[in-house]
Design a protein around this nucleic acid. Structure first.
Lengths: 343, 343
DNA sequence: GTGAAAGCGCTAACAG
DNA sequence: CTGTTAGCGCTTTCAC
């Protein structure tokens, strides 16, 4: 098998194959200028010697490293996991390796990591849920350093990104609740420094407006996408003199918090109150009652982003593409027609 | 090529600080042979110039890369995610970076990746749920290449590893079921090429023997740790003339399959049948009924493994440590006293 | 203490 | 088509 003992280098392969090591390098890089016969011979001795290129050296010498960097906020929720799976499945088809970084939701680390990676570790960067992309997208773009933003939905900047139609998803979910007869719908926002969170809030508001329903500020609780926010917000809603009959949480994690709070208040879902989430993380279909939610094509987003990055890597001058994937309302058991409603 | 800015190197720092670049290198490596005054000056210009070492070059020149490799079977279940979180939290405290590889459960890729990584990418390797460690542990150990096995529980080899007490956990769970009055307990195994799976099966058998309960081969279904196995196995059990009154799945994923199958057979959990899992993945407490399961300290395992690796990295001659973390039975709502039992 | 020089394994001109 | 020659940025002797 493959031993890590005597590192065999292109020089070894070269002497063994009776060519100069420059030729071996050409073979490695699929350079056209190699006689097929020679190439074959080199390829075979590489095989025989169990040769593996040293990527450090490759990168150092000015080539690619065949490593792409992935920056994620954290690993806590299944949310990120799904995206990574998508990326991973694309990566497997290529021969790029993955370098994973966690910012632990520390926005300030973001730019630092990005530049450090860009400087000399990787060939391209994938950024999930970037916090302050403005801090570096400009520089990166100017230097033509390949990168793709995932689930950003930023305001303005024109850089490669893939996201989901947050606005439409939130609109549809709210609309659905209204169809069920609900008029007082509590909304728990995500971190409003993220475009996705804002879009969801706007989708909610627009649906309300469309149906001429008053937007009651008291029914909007500002959260941060974390489970406890769902609990807190719900507790607050339920103490209102006129509590909502449905609650729409900006992501599934917070929806779990909502469910707990409702339960703790001795109420039943969906009989007493309807709950809807966003994302459709794996747990969503597992909880009881199964959560009605807006499905984000997480894995597909990861996949698309990786594909886009590869495309940019291959063709550095391709124009920045902003892809928007459709969301889909997954109707399950946490929502029901409002009691006494004619809807 | 991809420059983020004019890459500043030790040479730049050197000329700026009025020393030779060799001295700068010494400062970087905390070499004692540098006059404190000089060191300080170099440090300051490094700061001022925003210098960052190039790890590729460092590693190439024979130093460390400050990158550790992580090999996981896949990213599908929360199981791996929890372990990664633990690793990540330790990594954050150090200044190592993480390189993530997925074998997609392809045992044959394992050794290949390991050697490729060891050859020149990383300073150490963390292996989660290794499949055929024997293929490379010997070589790695002989070359003194740092690595730690996670959740391996292998048979025989004496290399650094952290695992959980699978045997004890399975024994306790089975024992608990017996205490509840169950005598016919179906068992769904994991991939029996994994030590952990074997240990769980043995724990189950021993508990049965301890209580002088016949081990009925027909109540043991061989699975592979994947959800569908739970479904299939259960369907098979339920068709028996004398079906089990409780089912113990070797992991939570399969337990989810069990739950689905039971439900599809029109039976209720835990009234008609008790179900118990293993791992305590995040979903376990979220499904309804909440799953009784054996908790593995996944995050802690990741954390410990990372710590062990760092220890080995720091002190290459430390003797291999095999750590066994305790499992804990989490009693929830999927298990109940056998009807008509005096238990 | 500190400088100088020799690589690490590879890519990228530049000659033939 | 293929060999040769510079480096890439850094660690490590080996001198002084």
């Amino acid at each position: 098998m493959n031993k890590i003992s005597k590192k065999i280098t292109i020089v070894d392969v070269a002497s063994e194959a009776q060519v100069s090591f420059g030729t071996v390098s050409r073979v490695i890089n699929n350079d056209i200028h190699v006689k097929p016969e020679t190439r074959e011979r080199v390829l075979q001795t590489m095989e025989r010697l169990n040769y593996v290129v040293n990527r450090q050296a490759q990168k150092l010498a000015g080539g690619r490293s065949n490593v792409i960097g992935l920056l994620v906020p954290d690993l806590g929720t299944g949310y990120i996991g799904e995206i990574i799976r998508g990326i991973d499945s694309e990566l497997t088809l290529s021969d790029y390796d993955l370098m994973l970084y966690t910012t632990h939701r520390t926005a300030s680390k973001e730019a630092g990591y990005v530049f450090s990676l860009a400087q000399d570790m990787v060939d391209g960067i994938l950024l999930v849920l970037p916090r302050n992309p403005v801090d570096y997208t400009g520089t990166l773009a100017k230097k033509k350093f390949p990168f793709v933003l995932i689930d950003h939905q930023g305001t303005g900047e024109n850089c490669p990104a893939v996201g989901a139609s947050n606005w439409q998803g939130a609109f549809n979910a709210t609309d659905y609740l209204i169809q069920l007869g609900h008029k007082r719908i509590g909304f728990i926002t995500g971190s409003l420094d993220l475009g996705a969170a804002i879009d969801r809030l706007e989708g909610y508001k627009t649906a309300l407006r469309t149906h001429h329903i008053h937007i009651d500020p008291v029914l909007i609780f500002e959260g941060t996408f974390e489970q406890p926010d769902g609990y807190t917000g719900t507790a607050q809603f339920l103490d209102l003199k006129s509590p909502p009959t449905a609650i729409f949480a900006s992501n599934d994690c917070m929806a779990m918090g909502v469910i707990d709070a409702v339960r703790d208040h001795g109420m039943k879902i969906p009989d007493d109150i309807s709950v809807i989430g966003f994302d459709d993380i794996p747990q969503a279909s597992l909880v009881r009652p199964a959560l009605t939610t807006v499905q984000q094509p997480l894995e597909q987003m990861g996949r698309m982003a990786a594909q886009m990055l590869f495309e940019i890597l291959k063709n550095p001058d391709s124009k920045p593409d902003r892809i928007q994937l459709p969301t889909q309302l997954m109707i399950r058991d946490s929502t029901a027609k409002l009691k006494g409603s004619s809807g």
